[in-house]
């Protein structure tokens, strides 16, 4: 049902855990099945230096969380905002149709984390 890459990220998720001194935190709840993701970012000179996540959800939710934290590292905030849920799913070699909604969780939490950072830091 899942691609090898999804299974790989699910088995060995990258960047797991809270970041107590994060510069931005975003949470997203999955309205479809009720799962939750929290994404933390550290920002230096307008770029995302580090990202971490916590996820309560299915295999696809955990794998997309892991993947999105990898994808955003080193990106500017605007570049990171351009990452769509489709892009995350594609980076994982695709998701089963019934699991596409899980990737929204990651994209949404990322967007919220960036919003949170921007609302904290005077532009």
């Amino acid at each position: 049902m899942y691609s090898d890459l999804v299974m790989e990220h699910f088995s060995n998720p990258r960047n797991v855990g809270a970041m107590p001194d994060a510069d931005g935190v975003g949470s997203a709840g999955n309205p479809v099945c009720g799962d939750v993701m929290k994404l933390f970012i550290r920002v230096r000179d307008g770029r995302i230096e580090d990202a971490r996540f916590q996820t309560f959800g299915c295999g696809a939710a955990i794998a997309t969380s892991s993947m999105v934290t990898e994808m955003v590292k080193g990106k500017t905030l605007d570049e990171a905002l351009d990452i769509s849920n489709k892009a995350v799913a594609e980076a994982l070699g695709g998701l089963p149709p019934t699991k596409m909604h899980c990737s929204n969780l990651a994209a949404e939490a990322l967007h919220r984390a960036i919003e949170d950072y921007r609302s904290r830091a005077p532009a």
């Binding site: 099945c33 309560f56 299915c58 295999g59 939710a61």
Partner: peptide
Amino acid sequence: VEGESILLNLDFAGVAASSGSAC
């Protein structure tokens, strides 16, 4: 924790079970 992720981990270890999780 969520059931599907438990089942996948069980499956890695060769154990077949099921879950009532929404996922």
